[in-house]
């Protein structure tokens, strides 16, 4: 039993990790907490749902359509809501982000109604049994996809030119601009990648827990943020490890302590992390300049 709890924890954690990557990249580069990120997951889920169930498309059409749509949503959100506030106070940006999150939720509520819909899994891999434990195909796909994405993302950031531009902007936006890096384009790219990952996370999540509603993205979004903070915000391996740790803790506490208290336990971990080591596991220490 323990093994299967652990594995489903890892797979939940892999989903959190994918979402956390978006948070951590946006936070590192645009220096803002994109509260609407969790709701992009929900958008991705709904698009895949519409394409596969309502319109009867194949799984691949649904997956690619959902990723493309979310990427565009991410870019539009950044251009419309966040770009005008580049120079504004953090409080203003944060409230705007909450507004965007609220907007996406209520738009989904108007279009799809408040009832949760049944999501048909887009993964067609049968259940595999390892010893006594049985592992659903979704779990294996989720873990595999997440590992591939993290490796790909690390390669992209460390080897490609756009990746180097991202690193430069996250380090010092002003200096990067002086070096001829197009900051607006880099930030847009970050939002695009983050939102595309959120779409994948949304599809994987809805395949594993086959329900989708307007608030589906809210809690996973917040938990993924906790994962990003736990791993150290701005760090990609940190987001991955943080996500997996939070996923395992959540699943084990659901199984062995109390299913109602598992959220509270995750939140306590966040508060403890911030009190004891605000920079997280892999975060860099920032010094405040006067």
């Amino acid at each position: 039993m323990f093994i299967s709890y652990l594995l489903s924890g890892v797979s939940l954690g892999a989903i959190y990790a994918l979402i956390a990557l978006g948070y951590t990249m946006v936070y590192g580069i645009a220096k803002m907490l994109n509260f609407a990120h969790g709701d992009v997951i929900m958008v991705g889920g709904y698009v895949a749902f519409t394409l596969s169930v309502t319109l009867g498309g194949s799984a691949w059409v649904a997956i690619i359509g959902s990723i493309v749509f979310c990427t565009l949503v991410g870019i539009v959100i950044e251009k419309v809501a966040y770009k005008p506030l580049r120079s504004a106070s953090k409080l203003a940006v944060l409230i705007t982000a909450i507004g965007v999150s609220y907007f996406l939720q209520n738009l989904a509520l108007l279009i799809f109604g408040s009832n949760s819909r049944n999501f048909q899994s887009l993964v067609s891999i049968p259940v595999i049994s390892i010893g006594q434990a049985t592992v659903p195909g979704e779990t294996i796909v989720t873990i595999g996809v997440s590992i591939l994405i993290v490796i790909g993302l690390m390669l992209f950031i460390n080897k490609s030119k756009s990746g180097a531009a991202m690193l430069a902007v996250s380090e010092d936006r002003g200096a990067a601009e002086l070096m001829g890096i197009n900051v607006n384009k880099t930030i847009s790219l970050t939002f695009a990648i983050g939102s595309g990952l959120a779409a994948i996370a949304g599809i994987l999540m809805c395949s594993q827990y086959p329900m989708i509603g307007p608030y589906t993205g809210q809690m996973p979004g917040i938990k993924a943020f906790i994962a990003a903070v736990f791993g150290g915000i701005g760090s990609i391996p940190g987001a991955m490890i943080g996500g997996v740790v939070i996923g395992i803790i959540e699943n084990l506490s659901k199984a062995y302590i109390s299913s109602q208290l598992s959220d509270a336990i995750t939140f306590v971990i966040l508060i403890l992390t911030l009190v004891i080591k605000p920079t997280g596991l892999f975060g860099k220490k920032l010094k405040e300049k006067v």
Binding site: Y27, M32, F225, D263, F267, I271, V275, P278
Partner: peptide, 29 residues
């Protein structure tokens, strides 16, 4: 107030959010 003394901005916002949810969870138990 104790954890927030070291925090401000985004982190503080997320801690207050976490706190609100913890209270809700505790009351339900």
């Amino acid at each position: 107030g104790i954890p927030i003394l070291r925090l401000s901005g985004d982190y503080l916002a997320i801690v207050t959010l976490a706190f609100g949810e913890i209270v809700k969870n505790i009351m339900q138990n």
